[in-house]
Design a protein around this nucleic acid. Structure first.
Lengths: 335, 335
DNA sequence: TTGTACGCGTTATCAG
DNA sequence: CTGATAACGCGTACAA
């Protein structure tokens, strides 16, 4: 049904070699015959089969984007914003983006020579171990999350410093009882956030205890609000909280209103990453900005370099964060 | 570098045919040889080349998801939630999701036999005309948006009825000056929303004029807030607005606070689609719910049927909407 | 039960 | 400048 290069060659009265030549714009074909071939291609509406081409050229023209499995990841603005950056990066190239969502499918995707490279969000799961990833010998860039001595380049926010800035901002507003709402400790991001929080609290001479840190079990803000509300209710002394993500911060705002706390009057909230929507919601969310789109773009461009065999100078790229004060932060009530 | 079926055959001392047979689990190979082959496959860590397989089987194992070009689409919760549904649908299959973001790349993706089918969000642009889409003879399902006599099955919300319910809800609260915040008229969705709005206003015997409808030029909520604020400021009589999407509604909430209007005291706001985040924000957004995830799943399953050559009974699937009252709606101030 | 050989659509190498 | 033809990795009639 679909017209192949042979058909074109036959109709044009030439060999497939010549057709292939004009297709790839290579020299070695007469101007007149080239023109004739071009006309036949046009008339027959011939399009090369990318799969067949890939077979001989040993490239596929698409890169894998591996996001952690789990529901509603795509809805998480942290991911979707970085994804936007990746998309923008891919726009500049001739690559397509290939995604799969169960880890089994992701494994298959990476090992069946279906992609020329991969961008990983979080290489932390059973099927996709670092060992295994290294063994398949695919150009890989990790994005968004920190990895201990990763064999792959990482592009990520300076999350630890981000939390530091958040705590400091709250401190300067007068807060002394500062809590942290953190993601599950299975992720390095959460661990680093906790570290940044602890050390900053210590530096400031502030008291912190386990009573001030709340860790959601699974990364589902919607399910976590009730637990957060209970936590906030049990720790009324806390006047301000820093969160390891804007997404979590929005859950906290919800939780606060659930127990009759108003933001920022009764509770100051600071997010992290400064996702686009944070500026839209009311009250607009104070956060620690980082160029998430830039992170996605950078990851893509590094991957392109990797695919083209270039050597990467700086293996890791860390994007700096910067506190932006909006409407969810204020001086504590009784000050 | 990568091990092929030939290598396996050679090491196992059999023909490639036998290897292929055990690979596809087909009969006609002795239990002992099969076992030996399996062992060699395991030892050599052989993985079939999907591209080569696709060449002979004339399938690629991946489907295209075509989203409208334009920035920050992935961040739009309407899209990302449907995308979640598509992802969940794909989970059940052996397909991968292939995306590209510029319309030129999308065109190339669809015509180079790189996918077995496609899910389109909005087939409204220069390069991807309905004519052209039909001509490439690919199984296609349209999702999220209505299409006039579309040659492809559509899965979409009953947006017109949704707006109707929104207007009615506002009416029953006592609102008489009801406005609409709409997307660009280039999309059928906006047109249908406006229709639903107009007809309902008429049925209710309410006055509507162009002064009550605001249409954003481009679908970028972030840029549109200022214009919306100006509009709301010029039409202070309006006590309630319906929006063609939750995303827009959030922009309206922002715009309202910008000009000192508080929601819902001074202005009631109703969104559309009831995106997950709408329940999280404060005040939580009254909206017209529709199962966006279900829409994505349904689109995927229809596409699978199409790919398998099944005949589709109902060409179009319309998901019903249902008003859900939250915190952005109240009785109008002076009533 | 097993192997041979051809074809899938394309590119690349070599002759002419 | 042009055309056979051999790969690329795999599936599958067909023959043995």
């Amino acid at each position: 049904m679909t017209v192949s290069i042979k058909d074109v060659a036959r109709i044009a009265g030439v060999s497939t070699a010549s057709v292939s030549r004009v297709l790839s714009g290579k020299p070695g074909v007469g101007a007149d015959t080239a023109e004739r071939i071009r006309k036949v291609i046009e008339e027959m509406d011939y399009r090369p089969n990318l799969g067949a081409r890939g077979l001989v050229k040993r490239t596929t023209g698409n890169i894998a984007v591996v996001v952690p499995r789990g529901s509603f990841i795509l809805n998480n603005p942290f991911f979707s914003t970085i994804l936007e950056g990746i998309a923008k990066g891919i726009d500049q190239t001739d690559y397509n983006m290939l995604m799969s969502f169960t880890s089994l499918q992701q494994k298959r995707l990476l090992e069946t020579q279906a992609v020329d490279g991969a961008i990983l969000f979080s290489p932390r799961n059973e099927e996709l171990s670092l060992e295994w990833l290294k063994s398949i010998g695919l150009p890989i860039v990790v994005v968004g999350s920190y990895l201990e001595n990763s064999p792959f380049p990482c592009v990520r926010p300076d999350d630890e410093d981000g939390i530091r800035q958040a705590v400091n901002a709250l401190y300067q507003l007068g807060h002394r009882n500062i809590g942290i709402i953190n993601g599950p400790m299975s992720s390095m991001h959460s661990i680093r956030c906790l570290n940044g929080y602890k050390s900053t609290m210590l530096e400031l001479g502030l008291d912190y205890s386990d009573g001030k840190v709340f860790e959601i079990d699974e990364f589902d803000v919607f399910k976590a609000t009730k637990a957060m509300a209970a936590f906030l209710n049990d720790h009324r002394k806390i006047t301000g909280v820093v969160c390891s993500s804007d997404y979590l911060a929005m859950g906290v705002m919800k939780a606060a209103t659930m127990i009759g706390l108003s933001v920022p009057e009764d509770l100051s909230v600071v997010g992290a990453d400064d996702v686009p929507i944070s500026d839209i919601i009311t009250p607009s969310l104070s956060s620690v900005h980082v160029d998430l789109v830039g992170i996605g773009r950078k990851a893509t461009s590094i991957l392109m370099d990797l695919i083209q065999g270039k050597q990467i100078r700086k293996r890791d790229v860390v994007f700096k964060m910067e506190y932006v004060n909006r409407a969810t932060t204020d001086v504590p009530k009784n000050s």
